[in-house]
Design a protein around this nucleic acid. Structure first.
Lengths: 205, 205
DNA sequence: CTGTGACTGTACTATTTAGTACAGTAGAGG
DNA sequence: CCTCTACTGTACTAAATAGTACAGTCACAG
């Protein structure tokens, strides 16, 4: 990790590189774009990139953080302490997915592409944990509000909702339509609210 | 697509190449291993590979079909006309996942890595459709058996179960444990069986 | 002004890559 | 035994790749 930029000009340069790299890596895989591709897309030069990043992998790490921020911004329900509505979150997820042109998940797309690089793998796992944690917070608020069954464990439910989002996004991307994601999310919410269900609340291991 | 091998020796050679390529591409991404990596892992030579495949992409296509066959073999419940039990399928999925060392899905891992190659993309979409179709068949048998609600649309439910599998597999892989997959599958099944639910059976678009 | 450190442009290297050329060898059918 | 085709070994090429070297330019503090 090199020192962050200290001037405005430097911040713009670094941001241009990360934004372009994130876009390309999201679309073509973490290992897809070459350094030269990133430079061309960002309108910068090689010396600029290596001024802010030690290596290609260092750049990839910055991309992961950048993608996490994008996801969090697109799901404000997760950070609104006044929001206890799972369907509001559902709507935000669907809207973001539509806006992205039915793309893959900005973070989920990288799972399975970081197994060779422990550094990146641990960053990605950490980001997913934070995401699932925020989701668990929302579930807890919904539970306290009486909108999901009271025997639900928020942590387990958060992971389950995240799984529904990831799986639904994959199928929706393959078919280039949002229906699979919609059904996946709706079913997951049903499982948390149906009164005669009795599975989701198994204790964590 | 080159001609398939006609001798036993040729069949063994081709199979060794595809098997090694499948293993490597599953683990490191479709674009991960170089041709030379595949050759080293399969104990074959370059002239042998190009004798059976036109190009790297042609090899990748063969890998997709190979992975599909592996998945189908690991889920016999899908093809057993006597099986109407979603939980039997669930158990087979979990067993296969454990056996793989909590790996990513043999097919799902490639979604988002084929967007640049329309040929591969259409193959993968086709294979997923076949998978979802088999799953819909199982749901239909379960419905006729009275094991899921009668207002369920098997096609929609099949996609939903597949989404739960894919998403659960992703999280399970990240955490190197099967609990997330287990909860995801169980919740999906609950959504199909809970008597007071009312969402999953929305008509397809 | 002016020096200093942040930032940038350009040329280069060593390696790896997909794919080709071509001369072979193996082994089944005649 | 012979021959013909399937199959294989080895050497090569042209392009792309991550990363380095180094000489600059910019803008603000003194």
């Amino acid at each position: 990790m090199k020192a962050p930029p200290v001037t405005e000009r430097g911040r713009r340069t670094r941001a241009a590189i990360v934004t372009a790299a994130a876009e390309l890596m999201h679309r073509h895989g973490l290992a897809g774009p070459s350094i030269d591709d990133v430079l061309a897309a960002s309108g910068t030069g090689k010396s600029q990139l290596y001024h802010y990043f030690d290596s290609r992998q260092d750049l990839a790490a910055a991309v992961l953080y950048h993608q996490f921020d994008r996801v969090m911004e697109s799901q404000p329900a997760l950070h609104d302490p006044a929001c206890a509505d799972l369907r509001a979150w559902r709507d935000q997820v669907l809207a973001a997915h539509r806006d992205s042109g039915y793309g893959t998940c900005p973070l989920g797309a990288f799972v399975g592409q970081v197994d060779d690089e422990p550094e990146l793998r641990s960053i990605l796992a950490e980001l997913f944990d934070r995401w699932a944690g925020s989701l668990a917070g929302l579930v807890m608020r919904a539970r306290d509000d009486g909108r999901v069954r009271s025997d639900i464990y928020p942590d387990d439910a958060g992971g389950m909702l995240l799984a529904a989002l990831e799986g639904g996004t994959i199928l929706a991307h393959l078919h280039r339509q949002s229906a699979p994601l919609e059904r996946s999310l709706d079913s997951a919410i049903v499982a948390l609210t149906a009164k005669d269900a009795s599975i989701v609340h198994s204790q964590s291991d």
